[in-house]
Amino acid sequence: MTAAPTTPPIFDGHNDLILRLLRGAATAEGVAAGLPDGHIDLPRAIKGGFGGGFFAIFVASPSNRSERQEEMTRAEYDLPLPPMIPFEEGLETTLRGAEALEALEAAGAVTICRTVPELETAIHGPRMAAIMHIEGAEGIDPEFETLHQLHARGLRSLGPVWSRPTIFGHGVPFRFPSTPDTGPGLTEHGKRLVSECNKLGIMLDLSHLNEQGFDDVASASDAPLVATHSNAWAVTPHSRNLTDRQLGIIAESDGMVGLNFASAFLRPDGQMDSDFSLDLMLRHIDHLIKFLGEDRVGFGSDFDGALVPKDIRDCAGLPALRAAMTSHGIDSVLMEKLCYGNWLRVLRRTWRD
């Protein structure tokens, strides 16, 4: 029996490992040595050919995650969004998140990358390559002092919102079935944030913005449009997924989309249930390639933040995805693009290395 392939390395558009560290569910040393649970650690990354990704700094709202996942097993659902996080709380957690990522580097688990050459080397190296990403700009002040401070520490990617509102804009709720057209978009602060990120070469992530916010970024930004962890609405009509119109706008900007592994955004019934074939992932890949082209699709797993397909389970299970892609007819050239090459391409244009 042929072993499932561990190459090319998969570089990933989104994970929530830092949130586990902030909650005390893991330590940096544990990530380097190996963890008993969760989706990501260095030994499993090596085993599965997980080259690294965007490590999200996220300010969590008080909530019962198990209750939320139970709601998302219903035939229809519309989860209320938490209220806005105060700036002081957002700043404190964001700075702790940056420290947690730096601790992962000190422990030998990751290499923080600030340029594409650094990233290209680290993807093939002994540690996971890591991009510092902020998911929801609760810790960014309207004068952008913290944005500049964090950029100096390595921040290279930012999402203005995580679904709940910020001073910069409005996110999309977890609603099924639903289009992403759910309310107002960016505020004036948000439009200024887009311009400032463009100046600094910080990539803007559209994944949790609603449709109006998406359109506002598209109008204000001079960089490629990127959704790090989103899927095709035509396959799964969930508010978090992207319509064909949105995919067309991303293609026109020469941006890209990272396929989200979260079960509810993959399954056509919108259910948070991991018991399904990887063929569903291939359906989304085919649809994304149809509208974006082969150079604008990658992966954005949402590891450590979502219920992923049972046949993958964690980053050590990525060979099963490569095997399914190969059986689906994806050749070695396209495989390399999807696994990491397209991320390097779009970041070259965004970071202007």
Rank of each mutant, 00 (worst) to 15 (best):
S274H: 07
G171H: 07
P177R: 10
N231E: 12
R68P: 01
V217S: 14
L318A: 05
A323V: 04
R240E: 10
Q246H: 13
H39A: 15
L81M: 14
H287R: 15
P180Q: 07
I250T: 05
L21T: 00
V116F: 09
F291R: 14
F11M: 05
L204H: 08
D311E: 15
F54W: 04
T166C: 06
Q246A: 14
S207L: 06
R68H: 06
F50C: 08
S253Y: 06
A264Y: 02
L321S: 02
G90S: 11
L35F: 09
S207K: 07
T146Y: 06
G190S: 12
D215K: 15
L193V: 13
H151A: 00
M256T: 03
I312T: 00
G185Y: 14
P62Y: 13
E102R: 01
A218M: 11
G34H: 09
D311Q: 14
S66Q: 14
H284P: 08
P62A: 01
R348I: 02
A324G: 13
G293E: 13
H284C: 10
P36S: 03
R296V: 07
F291A: 13
L321R: 00
L288I: 05
S163C: 11
I123R: 11
A28T: 01
A26K: 13
F174Y: 09
T2Y: 12
R156G: 05
G97C: 00
M84N: 05
W162N: 06
A218I: 03
G51F: 06
A129H: 04
V333A: 15
D181R: 12
A316P: 07
A25H: 06
A316R: 12
D205F: 08
A26V: 05
L147C: 11
R345K: 11
A60G: 03
T93P: 01
T166I: 05
F55R: 00
K290L: 15
A251N: 12
D314K: 06
G108D: 11
I249W: 04
G139Y: 09
S195F: 03
S327L: 13
A33Y: 02
G317W: 01
P9F: 09
W351K: 12
H170G: 03
